[in-house]
Design a protein around this nucleic acid. Sequence first.
DNA 1: CGGTGCTAGTAAATCGCTTTACTGATGGGC
DNA 2: GCCCATCAGTAAAGCGATTTACTAGCACCG
Lengths: 347, 347
Amino acid sequence: MANLKQVAERAGVSPATVSRYLNGSLSLPEPTREAIENAIRALNYHPNPFARSLSRGRTDQIQMVVPEIKAPFFAALVAAVENAAFERGQELAISVTLNRPGREQRYLDSVSDRHVDGLIFVTNHPEVAPLKSRIDAARRVVLLDEDVPGATAPRLFCDNDSGGYLAGQYLARHGHRAIGVIGTGDEMHSGAARFQGFSRALDDSADGGYRVHRKTGSYTIEDGSRLCAELLDEHPGITAIFAMSDELVIGTLDELARRDLRVPDDISIIGFDDILPLDYFATPITAIRQPVEALGAKAVEILLNTDWEDPAACSRVEILPVTLVERSSVASVPPAPQATVQHESNR
Amino acid sequence: MANLKQVAERAGVSPATVSRYLNGSLSLPEPTREAIENAIRALNYHPNPFARSLSRGRTDQIQMVVPEIKAPFFAALVAAVENAAFERGQELAISVTLNRPGREQRYLDSVSDRHVDGLIFVTNHPEVAPLKSRIDAARRVVLLDEDVPGATAPRLFCDNDSGGYLAGQYLARHGHRAIGVIGTGDEMHSGAARFQGFSRALDDSADGGYRVHRKTGSYTIEDGSRLCAELLDEHPGITAIFAMSDELVIGTLDELARRDLRVPDDISIIGFDDILPLDYFATPITAIRQPVEALGAKAVEILLNTDWEDPAACSRVEILPVTLVERSSVASVPPAPQATVQHESNR
DNA sequence: CGGTGCTAGTAAATCGCTTTACTGATGGGC
DNA sequence: GCCCATCAGTAAAGCGATTTACTAGCACCG
C-alpha cells in the first residue's frame, strides 16, 4: 500500500509538496502537478485516513446512535442522515442500541473514545437519567426526534404539537366528537406534544363537547393492537382514532380488521410519521407526515455548523414543520352526534 | 484531551509501560497497576483510535454496503450485522447506495481508501458488470444475500432454492394447481434460485398438471401490486400466489384488497423474507423465513475468519437454511381442480 | 544596486500510540 | 561468589499524514 513518501519520491518532490497540493493549499505549475498525478495513479495511492485524522485532529466522520433500525421511521431517518452526511463529505457511522442497557451511554462515551467529529443521538425511551450528564460531557451531540430533558445540546424535532393540532382539527372538521388517541404518554416529549396539540385543536373548534380517550404505550405494532383493543372495549362509541406512529397505525388496522370494522366506514383513522407507504394500503391512510429528509439534513447541518463554545447555540431548539397528507381513512360523520355517542362518559 | 504520555507521567512510568499494560502484553505488580489505573481515571483518558489504527495497521472496523436501508429486509440485515460486529468488538460503518450510479464502486474503493478491515457487500440489482473487478481488487469483501457473478469473494446466501421448494411443496400439498409467482427474474441470483426450487417442488409432486405463471420485477411494493394485477388479469384462474419478498407480499395484498379478494378464501398467498410482522396482518401470512440474524452473524464471521491468501476460501459459498412459517394465508383447495381452472392455458 | 514580492517549493516537528529490542536489579542455585 | 533467570520496565523507531516556518531563485522597480 503506497504512501505519501513513495508518491513524492516518484514524482521527484517532497512529501510536503504532495500533501499540500492534495489539500489545495499549494498551487503548482503544470509539469509538477502532472508528475504528482502520475505518481499517484501509478502507485494507486490512497491517503491513509487514520494518519490524516491523527494529524489533523479531525475525523470527517459523524456518528449516529439510534435505538432501532428496523422500524420504518428510524430506518428512514438514518437514510436521510446518511444522505446529508455524504453530501458534506462526511462518513456516517451508525450505532444501534436496541435499547440494551448501557449501550446508549457507551456510544455517547465514544464521542470522546472515537474522537468522532460529532454525534447525532436519537432515543425512544424515557429512562434517560444517566444520559444527561454523558451528553453534557460529550459535547458535539445533537438530540434528534426525541428529547433528553436537561441535557445541554442543540435539539431538532418535528413540530409534534402542530402535527397533533392538524390531526385534531382535521377530525373535528369531519364531525368526529368521540375520539381515541393512542401514542406514548407524557414521559416522552413527542407523545406529550402531539397530544397537547391535538387537544388544543379540539378546544379551538367552535362547538365543544368532545370526548377524547387516550391510551398510551410505546410506538410498536403490538401496542397499537393492544391499545386499540382497549379503546374499543372501553369506549365503543368512538368514531375515530389518532394513532401516533406508523407502527401504531398498523397495529390499529390489525385490531380493527380482527373486529371486522372497516376503515373509514365503521371507524376513521389518522396516523403519524407517514413513512410506510400508506398510499398502498387497502384503505390509504390519512396521516401527519414527518419531514424525515429535512430532519436528516438539518441534523447534519446543526452538527457541523454549531459553535460548540457558545452556550446559546448549544441549547437551541429547531422545529421542522409537518404536513397533513390527506387520503381516505377519515370519513365525515353527521354534524349532530348520535344519541349512542351522547351518553358515553368522559374519562 | 489526555494522551498516553500524560497518563504515563502521572503514573510515574513510561508511555510504553502504559501502552503494553493496556494491551495486555505486560503484567504489572499491583502498585504500578493501580497507579496507572488511577491516572487513567483522573485524566479521563481514552486512547485515540486513529493513532492506534495507524500504529497497528488495523482498524477494528468493518464496513457494510447496502442498497437501501428502509426496506425491512435490509434494515434487519444491517441490524443483525451490527449486532454480530459489536459482539466481536468491531465497529460497523454502514453505507447506503440507494442504487445511485457510482456509489457502489466508490464504496468498494473505500476498502482501500479507508483502510477498513473488510467489507460486507449487499446489492439488489443486476447491473453489476463494473463491480466485479473492483471486488477482486478490494479483497476482504464478503458478498451477502445477492451474487455478483464472476467476482472473487466468499459468498453467503440463504437457501433460496430450498425456500422456493418449500413454498412450492406447501402449495402443492394444499391442492393448488394454478399458481402465480412474482419475484425477480433470472438475472438476479435470488429470483432464479427461488423460482427454480419452486418449480422443482411442483415437478416432484406426485400428480403433475401444474400451471405456473411467473411475473418478474423488483422487490418493491409497487411491483408487487403491478405484477399481481397483471397476474390476475391474465390468469384469473390462479388460486395461489408465491410472492418472493415482504414488499411483494404487501403490494399483492393491496391489489387483492382493491379487487375485494379475500385471503385465503378467494386466493392463497405465501411470502418470502418474513421480516415484517406478518403475524399481525389481518390475515397472518404464511411465508418462508430468511435467517436474518444468522446471515448477519455468519457474514461477520466469514469476514473475520477468512484466510484471504487462500484462493479456495475466497470462493467458498455458504448457504443458510430457511424455514417455512405456517400461518393462515393458504387455504386448501379441493383435490380435483375446478373446470374453470382446467381450461386455462399455460404460458 | 538594493529591496520587494513572487514562485516553487522544502525541512522538520507533530499527532498519539505500538512494538521491538533492550537494560538494571533482584534472587536462587550450585 | 558467580551465573542465569526472571521481573519490571524503558528508549526509540516507526505508522502516514499535516503544517509551520523557512529558503532559494528569479523578476521587477525605482
